[in-house]
Each structure stands twice: as C-alpha cells, then as structure tokens.
Write a protein that binds this DNA or RNA. Structure first.
Length: 741
DNA sequence: AGCACGCCGACT
DNA sequence: GTCGGCGTGCTC
C-alpha cells in the first residue's frame, strides 16, 4: 500500500502511538490513537502535554495490548488530538537522522525533532486567496469606460488576480474592479496561495570552466546519483569552487533530485543568491533564522512536497524534510558558524555527512582553508580530495610578506609600521584600495588611569571594558555590559589621567585618516549601526570604489569580492595565536588566509603585509610562503600526540551555578571521579582546565577519549555516577564543544 | 523546553 | 498583608 507521498506502511489501526515531543525529555510518550484516526511512523500530530498542547511526531506504533516497560496503563493515556494530514509524514531517513544526532550529541531526541519542526505554520496549507477573473458567462459591461477597458485587457488571457493586484496591474482604483464584479463582468475565483514556483534550470548558463575546474566538476557530476561519498574541494581563494559544485547541483536537478547548499551566515550574503540566479535562472529558496514566518512555512512545505528543488541555507537547513534530497554542499566547511552551541550542540558540516550516509547521496565540502579534520579525512582516503591550485581568473595569488615589528615597528602610540604606510601610499596613488585588518572592535581594548593605575573592568566578567569612541561608551565584549565613557578616574578622581591602551579598528582608522588625510576611510565591524542593510550598503560602496582605505574586523574576510582591493595589511597577525584554545593556530591561519586572499583577486597584483612580532611562527611562515603543507602537518602531529580530534574525541561538561565558587567546587568533584572511567582523560581539576566561558559562573570541564571509544556511552555512564548537583548547580554535556573545537 | 508550584524578601 | 524572584519537579 502506498500513499500520496510514496510511503508504504501498514495502515493497520494502531491503538497506541509513541510520540516524540519537541521538549527536553529523554523518550517518546505514549498516546492513544482515537478510533477512526490513522497514523504511521513519521505522522505529525498535536497532543496534550500537561496543561498545554504540543506538536510532535509519531516515532513508532505499539501493537494492541503491547506495552513497553515503564509505560502507563492504556486507560490513563491521553488521546492524539489532531493529525496534520496536509504535511507528509517525516520519512524514515529523517527519523534515523534525528535519532542519530540525538545520540551523537547526547541531546534529547525531542530537541532534535524540534529543529525539524521549525515551522508550525507549515503544517497546514495556506488557505487559497480570494481573487477575480473574467466571468465565464462572457458578460460585458453596459457602459464601457477607459478604466474598465484597461481592466478587461489585463484579464484577457483568462488569468486570475487578487482584487488589489488587478487594480494595480490595470492602473485603476479598486472601485472600478468592485463595479465590474457587481455587474457580473468579473467573477470570484480561488487562487492558489503560493504561485507555482519556477524551477531552477540546470542548463541555463553553464560557465566556462578552467581545466582544473572542469576536472573537479566532472568527478562530482559522475558521483551524483551513485550513492554516498564525501568530497573535499580544496581550492585557493578565488579558484572558483562555487562554479564547480554548482555543476554537481545541476546534475542533481537533472536527475530529479533536490539539492541543499549550506553557507555560513547566509543572512549577509545576497551576492551568493544572485550568483545562483545567474547560473540557474531563478533564485534558490532561502533558509535561515531571519526568514519571515510565512516564507519559512512555504519553504518548509515546498521542500517536503518537492516543489522546492534547491535550498541555500544556514546550518539549520540541514534538518528540513527534503522529499528527494540528492546532494548537500557545505561551503566554507571550516567555518565555525556551522557549529551550534546551545540546546543541541552539533556541527552541521559533520551532520551533513551523516545525512548523506543515511540517505546514500554525495556530500561536498568546500574551502580554501580546510579544517584539520577534513584534511585528515582526505589524507586517509575517507574523503575524495579535489584540488584547485590556481585562481579561476588566472590572476596570480597575492604576494605576502612579513613586517617584523621588532625591527620595523612604528613609533610609540602608532600601530602602522613604516613599510605598511609606504605600501598604503603606493596602493592609493595607483588607484587601488587598501584593507587594514584587525580583528578587534572598538577604539581601544583597555582604558587605564595613569595616576593610580585603575583599569576599567566589567562588573560581571573579569575582562577589560573596550572603549568605543564613536559611540562614546565603554563596553564588555563578553556579556554586553555598557557604560558611558568616563571623563575622570572613579578610583582617584583625576581628570586628565585616562589613557587608551592598544588599538581597535576605530583607532587604526584614526591613524590612517591622519596619515592619508585626502583619502576616504571606512570602518567595517559588527557594531556598525543599521543592521544588515547598512552593512550591504557599505559593502557596495567599497565594491564601487567609494572608499580608499577600509579598516575591518573579520567581517571583511568573508563573502564579498572587492574588485579594487590591492593591498591587505594585517595590523596584528599574532592576535588570536596566544589564547589557550588548541585550535587557535588553525583558526588564525584560516582567517588570515581568507583576508589576505581578498587582495588582487580580480586583476592580480595583490599584496599582503603581515605585521608580527613572531615571524618564525608556523602560521606566519605558512601564510608568507603560500605553502600550508608544513603548517598542517605540524598541527596534525600535535593533535595526534595530544589525542585531540580528529584522532580522539572531546567532550565538555558544563557546570553552571549561582556563584563561581560553587561551580568550581562541583567541577572539582567531577574531576576527581574521572580516573574511574577507563579510556577517558579529564583535564582538571587544575584551574587551566576549568576554562571560564561566556557569562558568569559557567565552567567547562574537558574530557578526551580515543577515537575508538564510545564517548556517548562513556559520558552517559559517567554522568550517572556523578554526585547529584544541588544548590542551583546545573550540568550540560557538550560533545565537541564550540569554544575549543 | 515550558509551566506550575513553593518558598523566601521588598513593596503597592 | 500581597507581588515576584528563582529553585524544583513533572509532563504519556
């Protein structure tokens, strides 16, 4: 027996269904299936839960009379209230994915289901719109007027319009339409709420590929429809990775399959959608947190029904109920935005591979600076590596050189070395743009009183307050605390004694403006007022040459192409190398490779200058030489020796409590228990392992296990043996925690 | 996750 | 005398 959606399943009337609910409960709950109602595994239902009603999904059916241990007596079961028949049941693959992700992340399966059921509005079809068309009786108006004439012309081919749409299209007022309707010239008609979606055309505008691109795309195209396989496109910035995987998307479309392209922080990258449109004639469906409710429901429904063929989305798009998904692409696969930190901690890049494995389709990871783990997977033959060693435009890669700040540093109170200043001057006089990159918002990271040594500190965190001179405020980048910039020291009362220490982008912009007074300087950072629209405008200004010097944080490393950008000066290449994060070097390398890759991307002739106090550091050497092999090999060896991912696995137990001392105390107790767990290494209770992260009173206790140990099972048994947290202490487990991996 | 219940401090 | 803070427990 097969239904509308192609699912074959028993339609034997079950009396009890196990329903997974979108709440943090470890198991599915049993509900009675009322007589005359039919459900199957995957059916989306509304059920009572305590005082409220929730939407869940049938996870399994229980045969009559059968009951698993711990279930309530059938007489006490509540009824399923409603079955959403407009939405197709979640298919078996998707249910397998939900269970898999829940097990992997140690999250409640219901919380993973919640990510699937992200649009309650999608579960019921939109009611049709009231519209009008020419009356089928052929009635003509008794008195013809020019306005009426125009309305009739617009309706000539028999299409239906909404009343306001018709008035607008004909250029008349709505009373003209009302009149014609009253006279029987027009008749009411139901219009579909969602106009039929044009489908992307795989053969609309195939690009001219370079030989390297053609080789890579050929391999991808051949793999589409041939089962599960993971590819890693490893191509330098500007090598045209997008064109390559677009060919795989095209092939999936030709084969009647859907495709999903994940990109980090999609809300900011309308340029990407336009590229898609140029290749496939229509815009793809978009999915991310900023999409409006109605549109979100349409995409969800379209994905489930098969009307939507391609989705471009943020990490959460991975949990959409695709009907016939045949390809997932993860662009910029190394990007941290693929990791979710709260609720269900998962990495969408890895779960994409899992989804491909479950549903037997290829997965494509792409990056100019692959993550260490993807690189290892490619080295070991688990992923197929496709290399694009040259820029698609033929432009040479930028020439990167080092400025040794110990010898060639600027004077005190300045931050741009003479060599960099000189390069900026040359670039500007040559008509190019210069980008000064510093990954630090604000004017100065620390304000100090010269008289008494007072430092402005956050009242909540133990961090310095960052001065934002444009806004006239001191701000904590940790918790968001803000206060007005002071004019005197609160400790000693001195008025002329406050000094800003160290640079932020605002301060670099000030210095650049002083050095090049005739140039237009633009600052780009996430505290730009005006939201994404403003950001897009500023990006446009840069693209069109409306700025000479851009000073930016990591915001400028991503997405946008700046055709006039010739020089990238990294103000502090060592920033980010010093913190305790074992991924610090990798992340710094990725960020600086991306940002220097902005130089000369179109016309060539790009230069990159790295200001550093550590010219011998492997990251700096890799960037300057353009050869990252040695750097990656060193990273891989270090990870291997430490048993860190990808050779081992990592978990964090997060302890939060109403005060720091109690969190710390409990973390110590936990750490003391660890030797009892074979195969698990706990870092701690040394202060170093009790890393304080985000917000007050939270500690992370890191645990590491070899790759072959079942970390999930180990953590579960470990947690079961922990002393019961009391006094407001709370625990949360996080596998592959964001702040470290 | 959400929601109710319950127990303590500061106000109309 | 109540309002409301969060700590605790429960939901088929």
């Amino acid at each position: 027996m097969s239904d509308l959606f192609g699912n074959t399943g028993e339609v034997r009337p079950a009396t009890v269904a196990r329903v997974l609910l979108p709440v943090a409960i470890g198991m599915a709950y049993s509900y009675r299936v009322p007589p005359g109602v039919s459900v199957r595994p995957g059916s989306i239902v509304r059920v009572p839960l305590g005082p409220r009603e929730v939407v869940g999904a049938v996870w399994s059916l229980e045969p009559e009379g059968g009951s698993a241990a711990g279930n309530l007596a059938p007489s006490r079961l509540k009824n399923i209230l409603h079955v959403y028949d407009d939405a197709p049941p979640l298919d078996e693959d998707l249910r397998t994915l939900v269970d898999w992700v829940a097990n992997w992340t140690l999250a409640a399966p219901g919380m993973v289901l919640r990510m699937v059921l992200r649009s309650e509005e999608a579960l019921e079809s939109e009611p049709p719109l009231a519209g009008v068309r020419l009356s089928s009786s052929g009635t003509r108006p008794e008195r013809m007027t020019p306005a009426r004439q125009r309305v009739l012309e617009v309706l000539q081919d028999g299409t239906g319009f909404t009343r306001s749409g018709l008035a607008h299209a004909a250029g008349v007022s709505s009373s003209v339409v009302e009149g014609l309707l009253a006279h029987g010239v027009l008749e009411s008609v139901e219009l579909p709420a969602v106009p039929p979606l044009p489908r992307p055309d795989p053969d609309w505008s195939p690009p001219q590929l370079t030989p390297a691109q053609a080789r890579a795309s050929k391999e991808l195209v051949a793999a589409v429809g041939q089962g599960f396989r993971t590819f890693l496109i490893d191509g330098v910035t500007g090598s045209g990775k997008t064109e390559v995987y677009f060919e795989a998307v095209a092939e999936a479309l030709r084969q009647g399959r859907q495709a999903l392209v994940l990109i980090p922080e999609i809300a900011l990258t309308s340029a990407f959608l336009q590229r898609f449109e140029r290749r496939f004639a229509v815009l793809p469906a978009e999915w991310h947190s900023e999409i409006a409710t109605r549109q979100r429901a349409r995409v969800w429904r379209g994905v489930a029904s098969g009307d939507v063929r391609v989705v471009v989305g943020a990490r959460s798009a991975l949990f959409l109920p695709f009907r016939e998904l045949g390809l997932v692409v993860v662009d910029e696969e190394h990007d941290g935005a693929y990791k979710q930190d709260d609720r269900v901690p998962y990495n969408a890049r890895d779960m994409a591979v899992v989804r491909g494995h479950i549903s037997r389709f290829p997965v494509v990871l792409a990056s100019a600076t692959p993550s260490v783990e993807s690189r290892v997977n490619a080295d070991q033959g688990r992923y197929v590596r496709l290399e694009l060693p040259e820029r698609a435009t033929g432009a040479p890669m930028p020439e990167i050189s080092i400025i040794d700040m110990r010898q060639d540093g600027p004077e005190r109170g300045q931050w741009l070395a003479p060599t960099l200043r000189h390069a900026i001057g040359e670039t500007l006089s040559g008509g190019g743009q210069a980008l000064l990159f510093l990954n630090r918002r604000g004017y100065a990271p620390l304000t100090l009183c010269r008289s008494c040594g007072h430092r402005f500190q956050c009242p909540n965190c133990s961090t310095w307050l960052v001065e934002h001179r444009f806004r006239g405020r001191l701000s904590c980048h940790h918790c968001g605390h803000e206060e007005p910039s002071p004019d005197h020291c609160p400790a000693c009362g001195d008025t002329q004694s406050l000094v800003a220490c160290g640079p932020g982008v605002e301060r670099i912009a000030e210095e650049a403006a002083d050095l090049f007074p005739q140039s237009r300087v633009l600052v780009l950072s996430s505290d730009l007022q005006g939201g994404p629209d403003r950001l897009r405008r500023e990006m446009r200004i840069i693209e069109e040459g409306g700025a000479d010097i851009v000073v930016g944080t990591q915001l400028v490393a991503k997405g946008h192409n700046f055709p006039l950008m010739r020089l990238v000066g990294v103000v502090d290449a060592d920033l980010g190398l010093a913190n305790g994060d074992p991924r610090a070097a990798e992340r710094t390398f990725q960020l600086l490779a991306q940002v220097t890759g902005r130089a000369g991307r179109i016309g060539g002739g790009g230069r990159g200058l790295l200001q550093t106090y550590a010219p011998e550091h492997p990251v700096i050497r890799a960037l300057a030489s353009g050869d990252s092999t040695a750097f990656y090999e060193a990273e891989i060896a270090a990870r291997k020796a430490a048993g860190l991912p990808p050779f081992g696995r990592l978990a964090a137990l997060i302890v939060s409590a109403p005060d720091r001392a109690r969190a710390q105390d409990y973390a110590r107790q936990v750490a003391r228990l660890s030797p009892a767990s074979p195969g698990l290494t706990v870092l701690g209770p040394a202060e170093a392992a009790l890393a304080l992260v985000r917000g007050r009173y939270r500690f992370r206790l890191l645990a590491m296990a070899p790759r072959n140990v079942d970390l999930q099972a180990l953590m579960r048994s470990w947690i079961a043996r922990l002393p019961k947290p009391t006094g407001g202490v709370r625990l949360q487990v996080d596998i592959d925690p964001q702040s470290f991996f």
